[in-house]
Design a protein around this nucleic acid. Sequence first.
DNA 1: CAGACGGTTGTAAGCGCTTGCACTACGCTG
DNA 2: CAGCGTAGTGCAAGCGCTTACAACCGTCTG
Lengths: 343, 343
Amino acid sequence: MVSIDEVARMAGVSTATVSRALSGRGHVSDTAKARVEAAVDSLGYVVSAPASSLASGRARNIGVLVPFLERWFFGAVLAGTAAELMRHGYDITLYSVTEDAELRRNVFDTLLRRKRVDGIIAVSIALGDAEIERLLALDMPVIAIGGPDPRLRTLTIDEVAVARLATEHLLALGHHDIAHIGASAEFDLDFHIPTQRRQGFERALEQAGVELRPALFEPADFTVEGGFRAATRLLGRPGERPTAIFAASDEMAIGAILAARELGHRVPADLSIVGVDGHDLGEFFRLTTVDQFPAAQGERAATAMLEALNGPVDAARRAPEAAPDPLPFELVVRGSTARPAAV
Amino acid sequence: MVSIDEVARMAGVSTATVSRALSGRGHVSDTAKARVEAAVDSLGYVVSAPASSLASGRARNIGVLVPFLERWFFGAVLAGTAAELMRHGYDITLYSVTEDAELRRNVFDTLLRRKRVDGIIAVSIALGDAEIERLLALDMPVIAIGGPDPRLRTLTIDEVAVARLATEHLLALGHHDIAHIGASAEFDLDFHIPTQRRQGFERALEQAGVELRPALFEPADFTVEGGFRAATRLLGRPGERPTAIFAASDEMAIGAILAARELGHRVPADLSIVGVDGHDLGEFFRLTTVDQFPAAQGERAATAMLEALNGPVDAARRAPEAAPDPLPFELVVRGSTARPAAV
DNA sequence: CAGACGGTTGTAAGCGCTTGCACTACGCTG
DNA sequence: CAGCGTAGTGCAAGCGCTTACAACCGTCTG
């Protein structure tokens, strides 16, 4: 393996100059830099990450904590993060934080403490109190996406507004009997997004002067199947049948579309359905949704991390005061919503 | 940050002994080991990865190359790999290898060469010739999953057998007019799995003495939407309508189910459909499929990697001779297949 | 009982970089 | 023209571990 000494010798400078030329820290004359670059190219030299980390304390590597790798949303966020970090020469180390308590402890107690990462991005993951303490104790930038804790710098979407937007779209079309498929109570315990979406939904109705009917709320687990079952229940209630459904995720909305079809209801003629996310399959199902651009969220987190690492060290550790502009979202009207059938 | 010296002092031994006690290399008396462990616990010491890597040349980190993070299959494989590697104290560094030529070069020319990983797992990814050369030049274990190149140690499923199994299931039910939705030609150029599945399909038919009808093949792109369109075309042909479809992926099979429903065909009464993968949504759609256990594949790759790193260095670099037992697969019969309607 | 042997330990030399410090050379300021 | 700030460079001291080597011990062997 070619080392920095060979490069230095070939370029006719000291290793210090090679290091400075390659890292861009300190002053190096243009000629020296050019000679170094030529040597690097001809030798195919690449800086050894461990050596560089050890000497500098910087790892050029970000840890990313993810709960469900196999769900579309997380994959999309991750893809955004990965692309952006890679573009800046950062590697990303994946920590799949599942339910398994032992693996989980291992991550927080050992893996993250090995000085292998410069910062941590936590993607929509419910963290225990002790876990958050551990993260903060690491003394490095931590950026959460849609996370629940005020102690962490968090990139959040205005969930209430998202839900209002979806609901108001239905209201504007003339619907009054609007049902909501959201998270069940236990899901809410450590993760508040579903509650917020429900609040947005309810607030929009109130504001429009539409009476809230508890029977028109159905809990589900954010999967297609859950949405299917919830919608089936909703549509099976005699006399109470809604003309529109706002589902708190696209996957549930898709489940609802399938349920409606199965029960012989036409979408959107008999039933309008709107979701949230911007799921890949949304287009296929002609699903109207509030897109929250997951890949862009991942990218934003990466950008924020890079800033945190290059700005003053403190900037990233202080919580919400420096709240960045909120994440964007947008109503995408496709074919799953329409005016209610004339009564 | 607490260092190995403090641990050594507290335990009353030399740093060498601490290192040996923690890594399990070399001999350490039980008493010494116990004292070291006590000191480690009370100080909360964790070995610095960069320092350890630099000194030992081992990184305890595996690079994983993945093409589409947001597709279910890759997420599932990745989850399996991550869990298994984590269990053994290995980190995993993710390299999202997309189409973007520049990012791609960056991965092979720089990121992977930083001495940050001990080995590489390439998940179902089509690699260029130059890229494979680069991987081999790294001189570290490379394990591919379902990859196309004989120069790499590859974990493969017997794709031909998978397709036969699916097809024979349909034949056994009494179907003769069986269509196949597979990959389009350009997809095949660098990735042979689709072709193999098609071969298995055709061979099963031949063997059963069923005539091959080119009209009953439709290319698609492995997405739900692609499957939907392909099935729509297949079902729209007057007089040529198949009674069963074998789709080369579950996502396409799901698309086919949706197409059939839309066109008013009952599944499985009018049309049987079988897929391949073991997709999450398969259960929901009551899809009969040949499960290939993606998470288990990821796990197997991880296991193979760990073996490669701890066995003789050469073992992992030599190609197929030491082919491990092939990956398992299994027909899962659910509700999307049945005997054809009596004619 | 001398010598061989294997387990246990410490000493110290790196691993391949980064960076504080010292020094030189210049171009300016006053 | 002395004095000073700054760009450009090299020297060498680490960064926090691992491991070859040597030294020592008690146990066996013949």
